[in-house]
Simulated scan of single mutants.
Amino acid sequence: MGNKGQSKGILVLVLAGICALMLLSGFRSAEPAGRSGVQSADASTAAGELQESLALLTTLGGQASAPGAPLRLVLKWQGEYSGEETDEVAVQHLATRLGLDGISSADDDGHRVWRSAAQLSGGTQLSLFWSELGGGRSYCIVTLETADLLGSPELPAAAADAGEAMLQAGIAAEWNASLQAPAKEQGGTQAALLATEQLMAAELPGIQAEESYTDISTSSHSYSVPGLQRTVSSGSHSLALQLAVHKNVNADVNRITLGMPLITIEY
């Protein structure tokens, strides 16, 4: 497949994921930038909630992963934009707030998209993706990723700043975070999943598996967790955490992935 075909396929996957997440999160649009609907209190509350969640995710990852293993973290802020500025101007303003430059744009399968990326001082990769949806609406994803969370102390503050930048841009973004590492528990994926749940139970009193997924190489549970405020609705459940154990059959090694409130990267 040529490059054009690949870009079309990637865009289809991105937009499909966007639609699924919007349905899960019950997403609400922000008021346009510059209007009185942008509340700093909301940003402060979200930042505090995010810091607590990242600390908990780091603790859980350390307990569930192989000793000394690096903890890969992917954190995403994403939400819809329908403000008064044109997309081109809004993207530039958001990129400036994020400290990004060198924005590229392209027409992918009828949708105009913009991208920009930079590496922060501690090794965290910061990237911006913006896509037209049509009807005066666009969707924005700001991603922060590090291969080693414990070696990237700048990430929590940078993540909070990114959320504030999106709110200032008129985007009521929601965050999700996924942590991944070689698993402490080996053997079959279902047995490793249950053993990992026991490790997490001390940190998460009342944790309850609500949904499950299993295939030949993966076992996953999604949980309700009393006390965790960041949740998504799925049927009659409010899910706050997802755990997956995936077997790399070539290396015969289990990999864990933890998601708050759900996993949004490949297991």
Rank of each mutant, 00 (worst) to 15 (best):
L155G: 05
V249H: 12
G136F: 14
V12Q: 09
G9I: 01
L23R: 15
P32I: 06
T143M: 15
Q125P: 13
L98D: 01
L199Q: 13
L239I: 09
G102F: 12
T189C: 10
G187M: 10
S138K: 05
W114T: 00
G134Y: 15
R28T: 15
H246A: 03
E84V: 10
M1Y: 05
A55D: 15
L21T: 03
S236M: 11
A209F: 03
V142D: 02
I103Y: 04
L15Y: 05
E154D: 14
A47K: 03
G235F: 01
G163Q: 06
F129Y: 10
D109W: 12
Q190E: 14
G206S: 01
Q168T: 15
N250L: 07
A41G: 10
L194P: 04
A192H: 02
T146L: 04
A30T: 11
T45R: 11
R28E: 14
M200A: 02
G2R: 06
A251K: 12
S234G: 06
H221K: 03
E132S: 08
E211S: 04
G62C: 07
W175E: 09
S36T: 14
F27E: 11
I207E: 01
T196N: 05
D109F: 12
E197G: 03
L71Y: 05
S44K: 13
S116Y: 03
Q198D: 12
S44Y: 06
S104Y: 12
A33D: 08
L241P: 00
Q242S: 02
V245D: 02
Q125V: 14
W114S: 01
S234H: 05
G48H: 13
L98N: 04
L243D: 00
Q125M: 13
S217Y: 07
L126D: 00
A41Q: 11
T59Y: 08
R112C: 02
V91M: 08
L98F: 11
D148S: 12
V113E: 07
A169E: 08
P70A: 07
Q168S: 15
A20K: 10
G2D: 09
P226Q: 00
V232T: 13
K184Q: 11
G123T: 06
D87V: 02
L71A: 05
G61Y: 03
S40L: 14
A55K: 13
T189H: 11
L15G: 00
V142Y: 05
W175M: 10
S53R: 02
H93S: 10
A41E: 11
H221I: 00
S212A: 13
T264M: 05
A46H: 01
Q6C: 08
P261M: 03
T189V: 11
R28G: 13
T264L: 03
G227R: 00
G136W: 14
G62M: 02
G83T: 05
A64K: 01
S219M: 03
E88A: 09
S212D: 15
I103L: 09
L100C: 05
R137M: 15
G188K: 13
W114H: 04
C140P: 02
S224D: 04
I171L: 15
G26N: 15
S220G: 07
T257Q: 04
E197C: 10
T86M: 05
P226T: 01
